[in-house]
Simulated assay, not measured.
Amino acid sequence: MNTTLTRPLASVRALSGLGIAADRHAGAHSPRQVLIAGDEAYQRFGLADGVLGESLRVAGRTDDWRAGELLQVGDEVLLWLTFACEPCGRLDRHRPGLSAVIGRHRGMLARVLRGGTMHPGDRVLPVGSALPADADLFSDDWRARVLAVARAVPPGRWIRYAQLAGMAGVAMTYCRAFPRVLAGLPAEVGERVRTAAQATSGQPWDGAGLFEAKVDVDVDVDPDAALAAAPPQRPGVEKR
C-alpha cells in the first residue's frame, strides 16, 4: 500500500549525516534529524494531517519500532532509528489530552546515514540494526541520553549546556535540570559540561564521533533478501 502526500511534493532530499534538506531540525550532531510518524496513529486518534509534525509519514504503525534499527527508504536513503519522540504539550493544542495518551504512537526519530532522494510510495525496509558505542544515546529516557553525551566528552574538552541539549535531543528548557542529572557523574566528567558563563577557557568539543555508526552504509541492500529476513515491510513514505 502506498500513502498519498498531504502536501504535493514529487520528492524530498535527505542529506547524509544532516537530515532533511532545508528542514529546521537538520544538524550534524542531532539525534532528531528525521521524525517518522505512521498512518496508524492518525487513524487511531482521529487526527488531522500534519498534527504530529512529522518529517516523513509511512503506512502502518511506528510504535513497535526500536532504537538502532536501520531502514532503507526507496533505492538510496538509509535511516538509523534513535528513540521514540516524546509527546509534548503542543499536541494538546490540536486535541486536549492527546499528549497524555499517544505514547510511542507519537513517532520515531532517526538520523540519516546515507542520503538520497525519497519519493511518495517508496518502500521502507528494515535491513539490520546497530547501536552507538554507548547505547544510552538512543534511550527513550532523556536523562540517560544526557548522561551518555556527558560521558562521551573527551578528557580535557568541554561542551556548553546548549550543545548538550542538542546532542541529547532535548529542548533548551531541560537545561535547568542538568545540574541535578549530572550530579551523579564523577566530578572530572561533570566538569566537562559548562554553562555559557563557565565556557571561557580550555578546548571545546564539537561532538565529533558521537553518533558514529558501526555499519557499512555504502553496501547495496538486496530488497528481496531483506524482506525474507526482516519483519513485515513498512511500505509507503510520505513527506509533509
Rank of each mutant, 00 (worst) to 15 (best):
T200Y: 05
G169Q: 07
V146S: 07
A152F: 10
L164Y: 13
W65Y: 14
G190V: 00
G156H: 03
G27L: 01
L71W: 15
R194Y: 03
R192Q: 01
T4K: 14
V112C: 15
D224I: 15
M1H: 11
R114S: 11
D49P: 15
S11M: 02
L210T: 06
G128F: 07
T6D: 14
I20C: 13
S16H: 05
K214C: 13
W158D: 04
A148F: 09
V77G: 08
L79V: 09
R61A: 11
A197V: 08
P8D: 11
W65V: 00
E188N: 12
Q72F: 08
W142Q: 08
A171W: 05
A171T: 13
R66W: 10
A162R: 11
A144P: 01
E191W: 07
A67S: 14
L137K: 04
R106Y: 03
Q33S: 06
A168T: 08
K214M: 09
L98V: 00
P87E: 04
L79T: 04
V112P: 06
D220K: 12
G74A: 10
V77I: 11
Y42D: 13
L71F: 09
A84P: 07
L70M: 05
H105C: 11
S30K: 15
A148G: 05
G107R: 02
Q203M: 06
A133I: 06
C88H: 09
V58F: 07
G202T: 14
L147W: 09
M118Q: 12
E40V: 09
G128E: 06
R234L: 15
E40I: 05
D141L: 03
E76V: 02
R93Q: 08
L35F: 11
F138E: 06
G50Q: 04
A208Y: 08
H25L: 09
R44A: 11
A168F: 14
P231V: 00
L52I: 11
F45L: 01
P8Q: 12
T62S: 03
N2F: 07
P223E: 14
V58K: 04
A28Q: 03
V124G: 01
L71K: 09
M167E: 07
G207Q: 01
A187H: 07
P223I: 10
V153T: 10
L78W: 12
